[in-house]
């Protein structure tokens, strides 16, 4: 405990609390709440039933009213805690409500109807996680399909990105040929060309190729990332050329040099690119929104947006599916966060 407090109260050098120390902790703790709070609230809300979601003020935990099966009634009845005229607390099940009077029964004695003013009763509630929020959209709606589409797009795009980018980076870092600097110039120049500048003609290119309403139409325009080529090339430049000469003396073909020497040695940079690519492609929104118009082809992002845009917004499903959409990225964050942050600090890219 003392270690915790000494950790929390650690200050800059001296013993006096400087205003900067106060500010630092204000910023850190405020940041912690602000950065994680919303996502935590989302996860928390995603386990609530529609009734609990509609409540104001909201509760912290997902409560549901307890139900009980009473003999003589087909449906399960909600349980209430009732204070009767003697001041005793009883647990009764509500049969129906008429105005401000509720007709209730004692589950142990279902024959006798007791009339209770609704002011005298409070619902008896227990904590319960509404997992059907997750199960239903995945099973009954198309979300499993969307999930699969997203996984397919992400995996395929990442594999193709890694392969084509690393091949190009190999050529640009280990061969001397005419036009090499021109190619590099082109790549650097387009580093910052955003999708939004070319969507209109790109759409016609995709349509001409018959890739409209195809997951490949989502995948292909994203894979030739200049960022990836640039990053891998910078890394490959650090591989000594003598190693490649040694492989040539060892009768390795150029393809083997790429595959058996250069690629394994580029593994750290490839891993960074793979992580970036997974996050990018998983999160892509605008382009899939344009290319995919058939529901069964939607990726999770597009599907979620469509659901959230409907007139009758079913928040309980949307919240749960948002959590599902968030999971892979959160996993990446938990396990690879350090890797990514040092990578960004080093390369200054996103």
């Amino acid at each position: 405990m003392s270690r915790v407090s000494s950790f929390l109260l650690r200050r800059r050098g001296g013993t006096r609390w400087d205003w900067t120390d106060v500010f630092t902790w204000f910023w850190l703790i405020g940041g912690f709440i602000l950065m994680f709070g919303p996502a935590a609230w989302l996860v928390n809300s995603s386990f609530k039933t529609p009734a609990a979601l509609a409540e104001f003020p909201p509760t912290l935990l997902p409560y549901v009213t307890e139900l009980v099966q009473v003999d003589g009634y087909d449906n399960a009845l909600p349980l209430y805690e009732v204070t009767d005229e003697n001041g005793d607390a009883r647990v009764l099940a509500e049969v129906r409500r008429i105005g401000i009077v509720a007709q209730m029964v004692d589950p142990a004695n279902p024959q006798e109807i007791i009339k209770v003013s609704i002011q005298d009763r409070t619902p008896r509630r227990t904590v319960s996680f509404a997992t059907e929020n997750y199960v239903e959209p995945l099973v009954a709606n198309d979300f499993l399909r969307y999930l699969w589409n997203s996984v397919f797009v992400t995996v395929m795009a990442t594999i193709i990105t890694l392969l084509t980018n690393s091949m190009a980076a190999f050529a640009l870092s280990k061969y001397q040929f005419r036009g090499r600097s021109t190619v590099m110039m082109l790549i650097v120049a387009t580093l910052m060309v955003p999708l939004s500048v070319i969507i209109v003609p790109l759409y016609s290119v995709i349509s001409a190729m018959g890739l409209f309403n195809s997951l490949w139409g989502v995948i292909l325009p994203t894979v030739a990332t200049p960022t990836g080529v640039f990053m891998l090339r910078q890394y490959m430049l650090t591989i000594p050329d003598e190693l490649i000469d040694a492989a040539r003396m060892d009768k390795a073909s150029e393809w083997q040099i790429y595959w058996r020497i250069v690629l394994p040695l580029t593994a750290p940079a490839l891993a960074v690119l793979a992580i970036f690519s997974v996050v990018w492609r998983w999160n892509d929104f605008l382009w899939p929104l344009i290319v995919l118009s058939r529901r069964e082809l939607y990726t999770l992002q597009v599907g979620l947006n469509t659901y959230a845009g409907e007139l009758n917004v079913q928040w309980h499903f949307i919240l749960a599916m948002t959590v599902v959409t968030m999971i892979p990225v959160v996993l990446v964050f938990i396990f690879l966060q350090r890797f990514i942050t040092t990578g960004i600090a080093g390369a200054g890219l996103k």
Partner: peptide
Amino acid sequence: VFFFPVLLSPVV
């Protein structure tokens, strides 16, 4: 902590 939201998708 501060980096966390960077990875989230815009839709999320």
